[in-house]
Amino acid sequence: MESNTGREKVVVAQDLTKVFDGLTAVKGISFTVERGERVGFLGPNGAGKTTTIRMLYGMSPPTTGSLSVLGLDVRDDIRDIKRRIGVVPQETNLDTDLSVRENLEVYANYFGIPKKPASERIHELLAFMQLEERADTMVDTLSGGMKRRLLLARALLNNPELLILDEPTTGLDPQARHLIWDRLKSLQEQNVTLILTTHYMDEASRLCDRIIIMDEGSIIAEGIPLDLIETHVSSEALEIRVAEGQREALQELLVPKSEYFETQQDTYVFFARAADELMQAVKDAGFEIEYALLRRSTLEDVFLKLTGRRLRD
């Protein structure tokens, strides 16, 4: 189904469905993830991202369809799967009665990692996530950013081949986000496969080789970020607002020249391969320009086009 590079498939989902007493949260989705890939799931609240991810690590058995992770079936071999993957959950679930280091020690024990290698690995990970100075701090007193870093360190204890992250940077300041991005990039260099969900388009475009956009339980688009932008909008955008009486004329002028356009209140966004030509046309026609911005199109443009502006929850 995907561009076949012949690499090993780490996740294969086929016609995957999840029904919660009456509510279909995931509606027959199919996708694959190859080793070393970084795949991002995007979608509005309630799209089914977390549900999909929870099926990957056995928290939620699929209602129908097939799902294999690392070549093993989630229904039969979930224990073996969980030995080889790491999970950063959407909700923080650290042990608040324990210090940073103790949290990692207890977690290493769940994987049966013996004391000595565990303490070496913990030492490494504390350094990797820049938590050494906080090693003996109680978890309650950590900032949100440090808790996330600890969750990531915890997910890496067993040297996972596949790392699953549900909104890894939600609520973090730019410094903390950059640190996490940086660490995720260096994991990819070690050929760790990443699957993440996010609401941040910049995060998705920076981190992911491939994006899967979900809405209301279905996959509505999939591809590498640049291709998605090319296919669904166009590479460049002109945001423009003109004097009130001239709006219709502007639309008449630019719609035929653009591949797609949108209105956001009184401002138009026209998408085209070369948006500066649109700008030139507007100037030549003598419009009274109140505001104009030429920019590259983003994943956010694609996302809004495909999922609309309606609130979901």
């Binding site: 690590y57 928290m59 969980k82 042990d95």
Partner: peptide, 14 residues
């Protein structure tokens, strides 16, 4: 409240 079970269920424990 502490979601301890969720945390543990992401490890090999059932």
């Amino acid at each position: 409240y502490e979601k301890t079970y969720d945390a543990v269920l992401a490890t090999p424990l059932s």
